[in-house]
Amino acid sequence: MADEAIVNASGTDSPAVHDGAGADEGVRRRDFINIAAVSFAGVGGLAVLVPLVSQMAPSADVLAESSTEIDISQIAPGQAIKAVFRKQPVFVRNLTPVEISEADKVPLSSLRDPQTLEERTKPGKTNWLITMGVCTHLGCVPLGAGEGEVKGEFGGYFCPCHGSVYDTAARIRKGPAPKNLEVPVYEFTSDTVVKIG
């Protein structure tokens, strides 16, 4: 008896139900309801996953701190500061004319990640080099922005973790890092204030 009920559930032949075309259609309609009910349960289960997954994404208070304003009026040429942007260091560097010309001298073809200093700065403000302080190799903070730190053999930044060396345009010159230090989205809201993010 129980066996028979199970067989009916899968809609295959069963003499108890197979007594005419009308009943046959009835079986199909009834199967449809069962399938629809199970599908609804499946959709409901998937919908529950939405909040469970998205709760791990950055929350509103984290997103609210996704832009940072930095006062650059105190940075003299040749100096750099470390600021915090999205809980990561960002380097703001006021390049000297010598550093700019050094960066411009390098032939693009010799670079691993070819970019000119002009492409990495804002027009008319090529002396302001603003990059993330996150090595593109594995995410350590390179040295060179703080006072008295080693700037590496190309006068830019030097990452002590695995020896990546960046030049005065923060372009990768030597070592394992694949890319130049990332330039975040930013704009000058005035001559002395930069808004990053």
Binding site: A9, R30, I33, A36, A37, A41, V43, G44, A47
Partner: peptide, 17 residues
């Protein structure tokens, strides 16, 4: 709304079986 529809279907499926 969704649960109401799902529950009606579940009831029909239960009656079927």
């Amino acid at each position: 709304g969704f649960l109401l529809a799902a529950t009606v279907l579940a009831y029909l499926a239960k009656r079927n079986i």
